[in-house]
Design a protein around this nucleic acid. Structure first.
Ligand SMILES: NC(=O)c1ccc[n+]([C@@H]2O[C@H](COP(=O)([O-])OP(=O)(O)OC[C@H]3O[C@@H](n4cnc5c(N)ncnc54)[C@H](O)[C@@H]3O)[C@@H](O)[C@H]2O)c1
Ligand SMILES: NC(=O)c1ccc[n+]([C@@H]2O[C@H](COP(=O)([O-])OP(=O)(O)OC[C@H]3O[C@@H](n4cnc5c(N)ncnc54)[C@H](O)[C@@H]3O)[C@@H](O)[C@H]2O)c1
Lengths: 219, 219
DNA sequence: GTAACGCTGTGACTGTTTTCACGGCTTAAT
DNA sequence: ATTAAGCCGTGAAAACAGTCACAGCGTTAC
């Protein structure tokens, strides 16, 4: 049976993504190689963790040059990225939606927001920061045409479930939900709830009680 | 020695925060009690997980009424919340900053954004959605006066480290960084990097390859 | 009464994630 | 050559997180 690439754990995928962006955006200029130790310091994890994670990419470093940045980035990309560009839809062109468009326009990445949707007539049928905004009624059509399979939900809480239903209907396969209302979607849809309250309450909790504990966490 | 409350693991703190907001905002009306099972379904975790997490709060449910919502919320709050309201500063009043202010104004919560800061003169010395915006130069003063110990960084990447330094200087103890540049802060500051690229790349990765795997993840 | 039910709290277990530690390789220096 | 150094890859161990399964206990039904 196929089983070609053997699925990589969630945690590792997250860190690979982190490593790549550190290598691309924050590696010192004119350095072509680095050691597990260096990447570990940047990512705030242990060197052993880095080496172990990189095992999953298949990339093999050299014992005393370390990892060649370009090659390693390529290797991580071969795992994380769609061979073609990964098309993403954004639902909700409010303050948050616009910040997100900005954010992704600003970074080179395989992820590409190719369409935004809103139900407010005054926000659609125009270009927002380089991304075309459509009325939500065209969701199905555009998702199909643009081969979109991932969506970001940035609408008010009370509209989120309705939007999610439409996304599922339209054939979306993964959803990042930023609204505070948790969504119900079928089993086979990959859903991440990213509620800021939770993150901030964690920060506040540990800030309050750790005077000397080590902190820092990537999420 | 003190050791009064025995520190609760990171993961559990996150779920407690989730449970609370589910109980407060999404519990069916006119229901006073529920079972571990019910909360589990809402939070997308197992019932055993809920029961185990609640052990850390000290709250004891009754075998056949289950948990009294009001009491349980109180109990979680006693763990997560500062006895007084937890004052938070927001740095960067752009699109993202404004979305965040909206977000926290809209939810009852112990977390309270009491001041926003920006270095753009046209954005400060006015009230944004109910929150006073100050020039960044007043950071130290306001942080002290308002007893702020947690901050959200929502400035462009190239300004983030500078802002972080000022926050540490001003006495902040926990930072939620939304800018794409990872920060360096002293050991005793609790830092969470919340980079959207990582979340979205995870979603895209698993969306692409899971036709039948179960999804859903809270972060 | 008392039997049956169904839920909680928790010890024991299982599975996953992280760290440890060391063999092997590659280079540079003597 | 030979040695020394230092990093990589990985098996084994440790730590951590989550699940199972069951005793114990109110409640209800008879
Ligand atoms: N998780 C986080 O970090 C975070 C942070 C801030 C805000 N939020 C949440 O993100 C959401 C958006 O925040 P915002 O500040 O941009 O709000 P906003 O009101 O500025 O924008 C919401 C947009 O959604 C559109 N909309 C409403 N109903 C719709 C529907 N049924 N279909 C399509 N579009 C619809 C509105 O027209 C508006 O343009 C809110 O739910 C907010 O709570 C999350
Ligand atoms: N993690 C996420 O989910 C996420 C999502 C979207 C955007 N972002 C990031 O958040 C940041 C803000 O995004 P935005 O869309 O609001 O950008 P923006 O340009 O609209 O706003 C940035 C604000 O920061 C202010 N600022 C700049 N330098 C400053 C300084 N030294 N001190 C104080 N204030 C300063 C600017 O005046 C501006 O008001 C960016 O770094 C962006 O990449 C993160």
């Amino acid at each position: 049976m196929a089983n070609h690439v053997r699925s990589i754990p969630d945690k590792v995928v997250g860190r690979l993504s982190l490593y790549r962006s550190l290598l691309q955006d924050h590696a010192p200029e004119n350095v072509t190689h680095l050691f597990s130790h260096d990447l570990a310091r940047m990512a705030r994890v242990s060197a052993a963790q880095v080496r172990r994670d990189l095992m999953d990419t298949g990339y093999i470093g050299s014992p005393n040059k370390g990892y060649e940045i370009k090659k390693l980035v390529g290797c991580i990309s071969r795992i994380l990225d769609n061979p073609e560009c990964e098309n993403v839809a954004l639902i909700g062109v409010g303050h948050l939606g616009r910040a997100i468009i900005d954010y992704f326009q600003g970074r080179r990445s395989n992820l590409c927001i190719v369409a935004a949707f809103d139900n407010n007539p005054s926000k659609v049928n125009r270009i927002v920061q380089g991304v075309k905004a459509y009325p939500i009624s065209q969701l199905q059509e555009i998702v199909e045409n643009e081969k979109i399979n991932t969506a970001i939900v940035a609408v008010p809480g009370n509209a989120a479930q309705g939007v999610a239903d439409q996304l599922v209907q339209a054939g979306i396969r993964g959803i990042l939900n930023l609204a505070p209302t948790p969504l119900y979607v079928p089993e086979n849809i990959y859903l991440v709830e990213q509620d800021m309250t939770m993150s901030l309450e964690k920060v506040a909790y540990f800030a309050r009680r750790s005077f000397n504990k080590k902190g820092s966490k990537n999420e």
